[in-house]
Measured scan of single mutants.
Amino acid sequence: MSIQHFRVALIPFFAAFCLPVFAHPETLVKVKDAEDQLGARVGYIELDLNSGKILESFRPEERFPMMSTFKVLLCGAVLSRVDAGQEQLGRRIHYSQNDLVKYSPVTEKHLTDGMTVRELCSAAITMSDNTAANLLLTTIGGPKELTAFLHNMGDHVTRLDRWEPELNEAIPNDERDTTMPAAMATTLRKLLTGELLTLASRQQLIDWMEADKVAGPLLRSALPAGWFIADKSGASERGSRGIIAALGPDGKPSRIVVIYTTGSQATMDERNRQIAEIGASLIKHW
């Protein structure tokens, strides 16, 4: 058993032996400061991975655009179909130039040979490839079927209504393609630790998130040596930015963190910096 498999397999085991986890309101002070700095709403939640207890939250039940963070949920739905014998990670999917949409750094290189379902999930999560996400959405029946999958998990909040890139429109008060921090954190925890997916599929999902290559300026920039993080970021119109993550010290995840912001006029660099500073406060007061 690899170190990674050891880590995921023991998450339920550690729940019975973990020390009490204490919240630190200092992080919420930073979240509120980020709102002031960005001139935008910020949603935040910090969840204990083992118990599911909410440690801190700010606007946990307000809607925010999901942006590309939905791609983790999408690959969770794909893995659920794999577990049920309805899909194979090794199945190759062929597509054409007409299928390519904006920001497809991986799929645009494989027009001649296509990509496997496994490769598409990797591209969608680690590189946020939009065509990969659309191709995967097609395999499960489209955005409405992803919403149905989430409903069956008990998440009646999170919804996907459109495809890439239209889902990134982020119109104020538009509930399409949105979630709430509390709903996203709970759903992510179920995917990573619950019985919905097999152990192998849970491991695969967290491996893809751990290999994320496009979230460096966010929480990863504040991470001390030896800490673990598996994450997925997102960005969209109207100053929207977000990240969902499982992270913790000693090389294993122990908390879920979800951060969303929307409605800012700030630059992408400034949005990144504010999220990184929230992460730094979280780690300092861990």
Rank of each mutant, 00 (worst) to 15 (best):
S2D: 08
I3A: 10
Q4V: 13
Q4L: 13
H5N: 14
F6I: 10
A9G: 13
A9L: 11
P12R: 04
F13Y: 12
F14L: 12
A15C: 13
A16T: 12
C18F: 06
C18Y: 10
L19N: 15
A23V: 12
P25Y: 11
L28M: 07
L28P: 00
K30T: 09
K30S: 05
K32R: 09
D36G: 15
L38V: 05
L38Q: 05
L38A: 04
A40Q: 06
A40T: 09
A40K: 01
R41M: 09
R41G: 02
R41C: 05
G43I: 00
N50T: 14
K53G: 08
K53H: 10
E56S: 08
S57F: 08
P60Q: 14
E61I: 09
R63G: 01
P65N: 05
P65A: 07
M66L: 14
L73G: 04
G76T: 03
A77T: 10
V78A: 04
L79I: 02
L79G: 01
S80C: 10
S80Y: 13
S80A: 14
S80V: 10
S80H: 15
V82D: 03
V82K: 04
V82R: 05
D83Y: 01
A84V: 12
E87L: 10
E87H: 02
Q88I: 11
G90T: 12
G90A: 14
G90Y: 12
G90D: 15
G90P: 07
R91V: 03
R91H: 08
H94V: 14
Q97T: 15
N98M: 15
V106R: 06
T107S: 10
L111G: 04
D113Q: 13
G114A: 05
M115R: 02
E119D: 10
C121A: 06
I125L: 12
N130C: 05
N134R: 01
L135A: 05
L136M: 07
L136I: 06
L136T: 01
L137I: 08
L137M: 10
K144D: 14
K144Q: 14
T147N: 14
L150S: 04
H151R: 15
V157I: 11
V157G: 07
L160Q: 03
W163L: 09
W163I: 08
W163E: 07
E164R: 00
P165W: 02
N168P: 02
E169V: 09
A170V: 13
A170L: 10
I171S: 14
P172F: 08
D174E: 08
D174T: 04
D174R: 02
R176V: 05
T178C: 05
T179E: 00
P181A: 03
P181Q: 00
A182V: 15
A183I: 07
A183L: 03
T187V: 05
G194A: 12
T198G: 10
T198P: 04
T198V: 06
L199T: 15
A200T: 13
S201G: 09
R202V: 06
Q204E: 11
I206K: 08
W208G: 00
E210T: 09
E210Q: 11
A211E: 12
D212N: 11
K213L: 11
V214I: 09
V214E: 04
V214F: 04
V214A: 08
G216S: 09
P217T: 09
P217E: 12
L219N: 02
R220H: 02
S221L: 07
S221F: 06
A222M: 10
A222W: 04
A222N: 12
L223K: 03
P224Q: 02
P224M: 01
P224H: 02
F228G: 01
F228A: 04
I229L: 05
A235D: 03
R238L: 11
R238T: 13
R238M: 13
R238I: 10
S240R: 01
S240F: 04
R241I: 05
G242R: 00
G242T: 01
I243R: 00
I243D: 00
I243N: 00
I243W: 03
I244V: 14
I244N: 00
P249T: 03
P249D: 03
D250C: 13
D250R: 10
D250I: 05
S254G: 10
I259V: 08
T262V: 11
G263E: 11
G263N: 15
S264R: 07
Q265R: 13
A266W: 02
A266E: 08
A266Q: 10
T267G: 12
M268I: 10
D269M: 10
Q274R: 10
I275Y: 02
A276G: 07
E277A: 10
A280E: 14
L282M: 15
K284I: 07
H285E: 04
H285N: 13
H285T: 09
W286G: 00
W286R: 00
